[in-house]
Design a protein around this nucleic acid. Structure first.
Lengths: 113, 113
DNA sequence: AAGATACTGAAGTATCCACTTGACTATTTC
DNA sequence: GAAATAGTCAAGTGGATACTTCAGTATCTT
């Protein structure tokens, strides 16, 4: 019954590339066309397109072709998946780390021998 | 003045692999040795070691060799980087998405023509 | 001390990934 | 309608990545 992690895979993979995070940072400022996005990145249009596909699959970006221009903007869904993943993990994670803290404190006492 | 993104790179890259997330999920339950981690994964010890190196570089896991066993446990730092990244981005992200929402609402009105 | 256990290191492989080139298509704009 | 613009498609390349095997090396255990 475990959720298929493919969604999370795609998300983290998308976020794992600095060029893609740069694109996101750019789109936070304002929506943009593919060529506007490519300009400061120093890579070809084609490469940007490929990044955009990955960002779209991760539901971090939505694009839409209007005339000859492809308009790109942020999408909410991907970011929600990220927040959910964190929320779902934070609790157990913190519990485990707290328990660890206790153990390590004991270790430190023991270490004085 | 931009923070070097190499830390975030490592983090998202580490989280982008399902085997590594499985290892983390395992370590949330309890600390474990390399072979205990390898057991349910169906891959070699060596492969697990390689994943562990990546998780260590991302500061998600700490390992320590005790006798002939390498003890693996969660580490706080990586998770903190993740939470910080989100916190730092959430605000602008939400602002942008809200503004988008307005624009899209307008579009929807316009669409009725 | 001999054997088992738990890794470790080096090297190899197959696949993926970011990126390119170059030829092409669809839209403006003149 | 010709030229410029904005993107698209197919194919290829080089370097990472996720593994593997196999031959060690420490560290228990008996």
């Amino acid at each position: 019954m475990k959720a298929p992690s493919v969604e999370v895979d795609r998300l983290f993979h998308a976020l794992g590339d600095p060029t893609r995070r740069a694109i996101l940072d750019r789109l936070v400022q304002r929506p943009a066309s593919v060529s506007k996005l490519a300009e400061p990145l120093g890579i070809t249009l084609t490469a940007v397109m490929q990044h955009l596909e990955i960002l779209e699959e991760a539901k971090l970006v939505h694009t839409e072709k209007l005339g000859r221009v492809r308009a790109c903007r942020l999408e909410r869904a991907g970011f929600r998946v990220l927040e959910q993943w964190i929320r779902r993990h934070r609790t157990e994670w913190e519990r485990r780390l707290d328990r660890l803290g206790e153990v390590l404190a004991e270790d430190d006492n023991g270490k004085q021998a």
